[in-house]
Simulated assay, not measured.
Amino acid sequence: MQDIVTDSLRDLAQQLDAFARERDWQTFHSPKNLASALIVEAGELLEPFQWLTEKQSRELSPERRDAVASEIADVLLYLIQLSSALGVDPVAAAQAKLRLNAERYPVDKARGNARKHDEL
C-alpha cells in the first residue's frame, strides 16, 4: 500500500509541476510563498467547522462535506508543492515523524489521554 501512496503522491507532484510550468507560475512558488498559501488554505479548512458542536462536526451534510473535501485538496496540493520545492519526500518525513511519535507516546503511557509527550 505504501508504494501506491508514494507513487500517487509522486504522480500528483509531477502533475502540479506541469500545471505550474504551463502557467509560468514557478517564480511565485518559493518555499515561503507555498508555506504561506498552505496556512491560508488550512484556515479555510477550519471555516466549515466553525461554530459546530463535536457531534455536528462528525455528521456533516453532503454539501458541507464537499466543501471540506475541496479545502483538504487545497491543503494537500500546497503541501506537495512545498515538499517538491524543498526536495522533501513527504511520505518519508511522515514515517520518520511517526517513529518519533511512537517513542514519545508509548502506548502504556499515552493510551486514552491527550497530554503532550513531556507531560506523560
Rank of each mutant, 00 (worst) to 15 (best):
A13Y: 04
A13N: 05
Q15D: 13
L16G: 09
L16F: 04
E22S: 11
R23C: 02
D24S: 10
Q26R: 13
Q26L: 08
A35N: 12
A37F: 07
L38T: 09
I39R: 15
E41W: 07
E41V: 04
E41D: 08
A42P: 00
A42N: 03
E44R: 02
L45K: 07
L45I: 02
L46R: 13
L46Y: 13
E47P: 00
P48W: 13
Q50C: 02
Q50A: 09
L52H: 06
L52D: 05
K55W: 13
S57D: 05
R58T: 06
R58H: 14
L60Q: 09
E63I: 06
R65F: 12
V68K: 01
A69Y: 12
A69V: 06
S70E: 12
S70G: 01
S70F: 05
V75E: 06
L76C: 08
L76Y: 07
L77V: 03
I80N: 11
Q81D: 12
L82F: 13
S83I: 04
S83W: 10
S84K: 11
L86S: 07
D89Q: 09
A92R: 14
A92K: 12
Q95D: 15
A96M: 07
R99P: 00
L100R: 15
L100D: 14
L100A: 03
E103H: 11
Y105R: 09
Y105E: 05
V107K: 15
A114F: 09
R115C: 01
K116A: 08
